[in-house]
Write a protein that binds this DNA or RNA. Structure first.
Lengths: 193, 193
DNA sequence: CGCGGGTTTGATGATGCTCAAGCCCGGTGG
DNA sequence: CCACCGGGCTTGAGCATCATCAAACCCGCG
């Protein structure tokens, strides 16, 4: 259960076995079924969530009722409404499960205790935030410059695992195009490489 | 010179006059002329920059040599390549001056000292980072859902001051459209409200 | 077998791009 | 003082991309 988290954290900061064992105490395991919500718009996001099995997505719903997917998270990824979690304000995003999933939740007070117990995690969470900020910035640049096809190719190369597991219509929503357009792009890519 | 910064900080955290006076020691005033660079791609972003007069922009340059503007900053705003500043890695952005400007630079070691001297600034910088992250997320959602005209309207209502001072071609770059398209959108808006 | 979802395919239209020319205006040099 | 540039904005025509509406298709499942 915690093996994945251990190797995940160790890729970023080096921890002794003891330090990691301390850390496990602060996480709450949770299972969640396909289509179940982990967070709904208007609630407060109370935890950082690490995915050990399955797949989740975060998205907003606009005035016209359209969903816009901001992030997918499969095994070895984190997902949450960071703004809501950090600020304590209410969430603008929804998070739900694309597949039946297993999670490790790190709630806010637990995170504080963890940081106090193992200060090396300061660095870890700073890196995590940077990575999210970087990804968000990259998406802005991509949306300014790249065509739908280029954005899809970039999505495929960056998240090959995800593209296998998520319905095309949701990938289209992530890319900001209609499912029909994505279907045509795939068709074109299949005929001439 | 520091008056603007004082009221800016006080809007977010309450500081005594003494606490603020301590803080001023850590900032380096700097003047910069129109078109001069504050940061170039590949360098390391060594400081957080507060604008007291003038206007700056941050942007990336893609493979085709096109500029993509990520942010404008006029008086009372911050600008920097946050990822580079926080991680110490090399910057992917350029920052230069749209107008002759006056800045207050807070370099990394100075920021550490400031945080040690006045811990209330921890909260201030956390809020700053949240605000940037929120803005970036909002831009992603907008790019997924809104038309060029809607994005322009949203830009106007969010940054009315900036739209008066920046050439249209640069606003177009911020919106991810060509100057021609922006001109047509404006024409259409002028004829029928 | 038939239903329901996700995907594909087709036809048509809107949005925004490209290329190209013209316009406006401030700056410069004759 | 005026003619000439040059840069930024506008305007036009044609085109590429992607959306919309609609129908067909595929496939797993009751």
């Amino acid at each position: 259960m915690f093996e994945l988290l251990r190797t995940h954290v160790r890729k970023r900061v080096d921890l002794t076995d003891e330090e990691f064992d301390v850390c496990t105490k602060f996480f709450i395991p949770k299972k969640i079924r396909r289509k179940q919500f982990l967070l709904q718009e208007g609630e407060v996001c109370k935890s950082l969530t690490f995915v050990t099995r399955g797949c989740l997505r975060s998205y907003t719903v606009d005035g016209a009722g359209e969903e816009h997917i901001l992030q997918f998270a499969v095994e070895d990824w984190w997902i949450s409404d960071l703004c809501s979690f950090l600020s304590g304000g209410s969430a603008t995003m929804n998070i739900d499960a694309v597949e039946d999933s297993e999670l490790l939740l790190l709630e806010k007070p637990a995170r504080e205790s963890l940081l106090a117990a193992v200060p090396k995690f300061e660095r870890f969470f700073r890196l995590l935030l940077e990575r999210h900020y970087l990804a968000s910035t990259k998406r802005v640049v991509d949306s300014l410059s790249a065509s739908a096809k280029d954005r899809y190719l970039s999505f495929l190369s960056m998240y090959p695992a995800i593209s296998q597991r998520v319905p095309q219509s949701q990938i289209a929503s992530y890319l900001g195009i209609t499912p029909q357009s994505l279907s045509r792009i795939r068709h074109e890519m299949a005929s001439k490489p």
